[in-house]
Design a protein around this nucleic acid. Structure first.
Length: 420
RNA sequence: GUGGCUGUAGCUCAGUCGGUAGAGUACAGGAUUGUGAUUCCUGUUGUCGCGGGUUCGAUCCCCGUCAGCCACCCCA
C-alpha cells in the first residue's frame, strides 16, 4: 500500500467542512477591508527566497524543498507567501497603480521540518500584504483585521494579540551592540544555541525558552527602549490607533521575528490550545523588502495565518452541524426511478440540495440513509404514489407527512424551507 | 536535525509467559413484502507497518527501516 509523503496529509470529512468554513470567512472578511485576491505560483526561483527571507534564516538554510530544474536553475516550493507576492508586485509593476495596494492570498506552503502537533510539511497560509503606506494607522488596521478574523471565526477567546517594535536599520545596529555587550557579560549562562545566535542574530536570544537563558533575557536591554525618534513615534501611533479600535493587545518586548525583512511593528496572534505551536497568525512591517527585490522604495506591511492551526481551534468548538442536505428522495426500481431522477434535478436547479439512493434499496434502508445525511425532508414515491402522480413528503424533524402532487413538490419544499 | 512513545479488521482497542488472532463499532443481509431509534439473528474483512536476524516455529524477542504522535529546534 502506498503511503503519503511524510508531513503531508489528506483532509476530508468533518475537517474539510471546517476548512471550507474558515476559507469562506476569510474571503468575506478580506473583502470588507477591500483586499483583492492574488493567485501565486507554488514554485519560485530559489533566489527569490534567499534574497527576500534572508539566506541565513532557518527557513532558507535548512527547511526549503529546493531542487534543480532540468535546465539547472534552482527552484523551491514556496515556504511562505510574502516574498512571492513582493516578487509579483515588482515584476508586474503594480507599484504604478494609484493609491496603496492591498492583496491577499490563500494557499499551500512547504517547509521540510519535523512534523508535530500543528506543524506539517505542507500547510496552508492565508496572508495579506499592503504596499505603499508607511504610517501607523495602516499597522493598526492590519492588526485589527487579524483580530477580526478570529472574532468572525468565533475563536477570539482562544487567542491573544501581542505587539512589539523591533526598530529599523537606523536604530537596530546600536541596539544589537547593547544586546551583545549584555549577553557577553552573562555568557556562561547561555545555552549552545544562543551562543551561536550571539553573533548572527542576537535578538533571537530573547526568544529562547531555555530556563537559564530566560533568567538572563528578563533583564536584557529591550528594543522598545532603544528606538530612534521616528520608530518611537510610529510605535506610539500604532498603540493609540489600536486603543481607538478597542483591540485587546499586550506589548511583548521579548517578541522578535525569524525572517530578516521585518522592521518596526511586529505582532503575533497566539494561543495556548495547540501544544507547543503557539502562533496562529503573525506579521509585521517590512519597508525595505520591495526595494531589496528590485522595486522602488515602497513601504510594506502584512501578516500570515496558519489555516491548519485555525481549523484545529475552530474544531474545539464542535458546533459545525453534519447536516447539509435539504431533501432525500426515496424511490424504487421500475416504479419511480426515472421520476425521482427528474424530480431531484428539478429541485437542484432551484438551489435545493438533493440526494437519493441510486441502488433503490428497501425503504427502511433508504430512510436510514436519509437520516445519516441529515436530510430535512424525504420525498417518498412508492407504487401507490406513482399510480396517482403524487409523492409523500415527510418532515424528518417533525415526523409529519403530507401527500403532494408530484408537479407541486418543488414549490412545496421551497415554501417549507423558507419558513424554517 | 536531536530525543521519547507508538504501529494488530474501515474505526477504537484487546491478545498470544514465542505455537500465524479476537471484542466493540462500522458495513451487508434477515427478523419486519411501505417509514428513521433500539433490539435479536446471520455474514464479510486482516501480508498483526515493512525488511532482516534469533528459533523447529515470530504478531510477540533483537536489529534496521518507514510512518504517526509528543517534545526540543523552528515557525503560521
Amino acid at each position: 500500500m502506498y503511503q503519503k509523503v511524510k508531513g503531508f496529509r489528506d483532509i476530508y470529512g468533518l475537517e474539510a467542512r471546517y476548512w471550507n468554513k474558515v476559507e469562506k470567512v476569510f474571503r468575506q472578511t478580506f473583502r470588507t477591508f477591500n483586499f483583492e485576491e492574488f493567485y501565486l505560483p507554488v514554485l519560485e526561483k530559489t533566489e527569490v527566497f534567499n534574497r527576500g527571507i534572508g539566506s541565513t534564516t532557518d527557513i532558507v538554510e535548512k527547511e526549503m524543498f529546493a531542487f534543480d530544474d532540468r535546465d539547472g536553475t534552482s527552484v523551491s516550493l514556496r515556504p511562505e507567501g510574502t516574498a512571492s507576492l513582493v516578487r509579483a508586485y515588482v515584476e508586474n509593476k503594480l507599484f504604478s497603480t494609484p493609491g496603496i495596494s492591498k492583496y491577499y492570498y490563500i494557499g499551500p506552503m512547504f517547509r521540510r521540518e519535523r512534523p508535530q502537533k500543528g506543524r506539517f510539511r505542507q500547510f496552508t497560509q492565508a496572508g495579506i500584504e499592503v504596499f505603499g503606506s508607511g504610517g501607523p494607522s495602516i499597522d493598526a488596521d492590519v492588526i485589527y483585521l487579524l483580530y477580526k478574523l478570529a472574532e468572525n471565526l468565533g475563536i477570539k477567546d482562544y487567542v491573544s494579540m501581542e505587539i512589539n517594535s523591533i526598530g529599523c536599520p537606523s536604530c537596530r545596529p546600536a541596539y544589537n551592540e547593547k544586546l551583545i555587550e549584555y549577553f557577553k557579560a552573562n555568557i556562561d549562562h547561555l545555552c549552545g544555541d544562543c551562543l551561536r545566535r550571539l553573533d548572527k542574530n542576537p535578538m533571537r536570544i530573547l526568544d529562547c525558552k531555555n530556563e537559564s537563558c530566560k533568567k538572563i533575557t528578563a533583564d536584557a536591554p529591550k528594543a522598545v527602549d532603544y528606538l530612534c525618534d521616528e520608530c518611537k513615534d510610529h510605535f506610539e501611533g500604532v498603540k493609540s490607533y489600536l486603543d481607538a479600535l478597542s483591540v485587546p493587545y499586550k506589548v511583548n518586548p521579548m517578541m522578535v521575528r525569524g525572517l530578516d525583512y521585518y522592521v518596526r511593528t511586529a505582532f503575533e496572534m497566539i494561543t495556548d490550545k495547540l501544544g507547543s505551536q503557539s502562533a496562529v497568525g503573525a506579521g509585521g512591517r517590512y519597508d525595505g523588502l520591495i526595494q531589496l527585490l528590485g522595486g522602488p522604495d515602497t513601504a510594506g506591511i502584512g501578516f500570515a495565518v496558519g489555516i491548519d492551526r485555525l481549523v484545529s481551534l475552530c474544531m474545539l468548538n464542535e458546533t459545525e452541524k453534519e447536516n447539509d442536505l435539504d431533501v432525500f428522495i426515496i424511490s424504487f426500481k421500475d416504479v419511480s426511478d426515472k421520476t425521482a431522477l427528474k424530480l431531484a434535478n428539478e429541485m437542484r436547479s432551484q438551489g435545493i440540495s438533493v440526494d437519493m439512493d441510486y441502488d433503490f434499496r428497501k425503504m427502511k434502508k433508504q430512510f436510514s440513509l436519509a437520516d445519516r445525511y441529515g436530510a430535512l425532508f424525504t420525498v417518498v414515491i412508492g407504487e401507490d404514489e406513482a399510480a396517482k402522480n403524487t409523492a409523500a413528503v415527510k418532515d424528518m424533524q417533525a415526523g409529519t407527512q403530507e401527500e403532494i402532487e408530484t408537479a407541486k413538490v418543488t414549490a412545496y419544499i421551497i415554501d417549507k424551507l423558507r419558513r424554517n
